[in-house]
Design a protein around this nucleic acid. Sequence first.
DNA 1: AGTGCGATTGACT
DNA 2: GTCAATCGCACTA
Length: 204
Amino acid sequence: MSAATAHGYEVLARADLPVDTVDLARTLIGKVVVRETSDGLLSGRIVETEAYLVGDAASHAYRGETARNRVLFGDRGYAYVYLAYGVSYMLNVSSEAAGVGAGVLVRALEPLVGIATMQLNRGVETLRDLARGPGRLAAALDIDRRLDGADLCRIGPLWLARDLHDALDIGISTRIGLTKAADRLLRFYVRDNRFVSGPKALNS
DNA sequence: AGTGCGATTGACT
DNA sequence: GTCAATCGCACTA
């Protein structure tokens, strides 16, 4: 039996996702986010992620389960979407076993399919700026709280797909924009990739 | 019921 | 480089 495919993409099975949050953050680099909307198909390759661990003061799950973060406490491979600074939505992938609160923030994409629609969604033309940064990424793909809880291992409005490209040079750095636990090396990115966010010093 | 604060972004000096 | 916008949420009382 072969895995389900759509639009030329093969959906990632939950068994393909590492349970461990750091392993998942690394594994997601190079995978593809697929967004299906009434305006058509949008997709992009993940070039930057951050892990938010159990016992991590910077994690939304740190103070226990609430109505907002409940997805982080479910099984791995589901979308946790929240609004940051009252301005930007953030896309996360839940990790670890059910009952354990942790996840991976998807911080940047290399746009692949539906670039014209992403330009409209963002109000910006520049390819490099369409999904460089978590808030921009969510805006480009028209992601908001309606997609909170979406199963990313099932073909639908939002899912994860394999990518043909392998052997990416992955760098590690501190996470961006934190006031707590800011020293931990939990950010993963494709080295010297122009679609990665953050200061130059952290990207090579 | 009131308060303080961000896993950011875009505009501006 | 600096800084304000903006609002849902968690915490205090």
